[in-house]
């Protein structure tokens, strides 16, 4: 898209770099992911669903529709935030703890992308 400096690709690639492997891990069914989603009572349907959304967001972030991908990324991270607040806890040393740190990295990066590409969003872009 026109009108952006290239640096906007830095947060985009950060999100892709984290969400891509995470989504793939969920689809592949790693031990850790299965354990987390069992705790949430969403194994296996929820794990596959969230994995697909994560991969979709990562894919969009590499196209001219990056703004949409960033919104999807934010929505997944909000879900993760709820999961950690209500079921999983925030202890970075516990099982799945590294996810907590990555969660905030993705959340902030995706917000940066959405903010600078907000005009490109469908329907609401014009009024943002």
């Amino acid at each position: 898209m026109n009108g952006h400096s290239r640096w906007i690709w830095i947060p985009q690639l950060i999100v892709v770099g984290i969400l891509g492997p995470m989504g793939w891990g969920k689809l592949a069914g790693t031990v850790g992911e299965i354990e987390l989603f069992t705790m949430l009572g969403m194994e296996p349907t929820g794990r596959i669903l969230v994995g697909l959304v994560e991969l979709g967001a990562a894919a969009l972030l590499l196209t001219p529709y990056a703004a949409n991908g960033a919104v999807l990324a934010i929505s997944v991270m909000l879900g993760a935030l709820i999961a950690h607040s209500t079921h999983l806890g925030f202890d970075p040393t516990a099982e799945g703890g590294i996810f907590v740190i990555l969660l905030f990295v993705v959340l902030i990066s995706a917000h940066v992308v959405v903010y600078f590409r907000r005009k490109e969003l469908p329907f609401i872009g014009e009024t943002l």
């Binding site: 009572g41 919104v71 879900g79 209500t86």
Partner: peptide, 25 residues
């Protein structure tokens, strides 16, 4: 989502984002 099924949090996230957008507006 908390008491019945975590799947309801898909709705929670959707509405939360709408609330956020509305706050901005």
């Amino acid at each position: 989502g908390y008491h019945v099924s975590f799947y309801y949090h898909f709705l929670t996230v959707g509405f939360a984002m709408l609330v956020g957008l509305n706050f901005f507006y």
